[in-house]
């Protein structure tokens, strides 16, 4: 992120301390995570202690302090998905990608995350890959989905 881009975000929110959450959301949207350097600059510009920014950044689930993978795999663990077997779907994902939720594969290809309900309960259990919904999942469908993704990314 360039200084100009950051300045644009800060200006959009009138350099208001009360808009800190929204400012961090904009940075996260642009960078896919919150780089420390940028947070330091925000701290200086808004005259907010860096600790307070980190307090926000670690409190809310929407933020990540580490770079995320090129593909985001989200397993819905809402109640409807849970009673329809989301735990086993998540286990299979963890095993296949060899990461835990919140982590990124060592090749920076996939970040695995969970979400507490996406309101698409009719599709339970649900997995979302880069915004594409894959509903009524089964363990075996997870395998073919990941293999398909891997094949597709090889081609591209």
């Amino acid at each position: 992120m360039t200084s100009a881009q950051l300045e644009k975000i800060l200006k959009k929110h009138d350099h208001q301390k009360a808009s800190l959450l929204a400012i961090l959301q904009d940075i996260q949207a642009l960078e896919n995570y919150l780089p420390r350097k940028i947070l330091e600059e925000v701290s200086q510009q808004l005259q907010v202690p860096l600790a307070q920014i980190y307090y926000l950044a670690t409190f809310y689930r929407a933020f990540s302090l580490t770079p995320r993978g090129r593909h985001l795999v989200t397993v819905c663990t809402g109640t409807a998905c849970h009673v329809k077997g989301a735990a086993s779907i998540l286990n299979t994902m963890e095993r296949e990608l060899a990461v835990k939720p919140g982590e990124t594969t060592s090749d920076k290809k996939y970040t695995l995350e969970t979400v507490n309900c996406l309101g698409s309960c009719a599709l339970a259990p649900l997995v979302v890959v880069d915004g594409h919904y894959h509903g009524r999942m089964l363990g075996t469908k997870v395998l073919s989905l990941l293999r398909g993704e891997k094949d597709a990314s090889k081609k591209s």
Binding site: L21, L56, F59, Y60, A62
Partner: peptide, 23 residues
Amino acid sequence: NKGGGAFVAGESSALMASIEGYV
């Protein structure tokens, strides 16, 4: 205002703290 992904933010006093820019 867009939330930050915290269940407790649905509680009224927590939600207001969040609007004010706090956790």
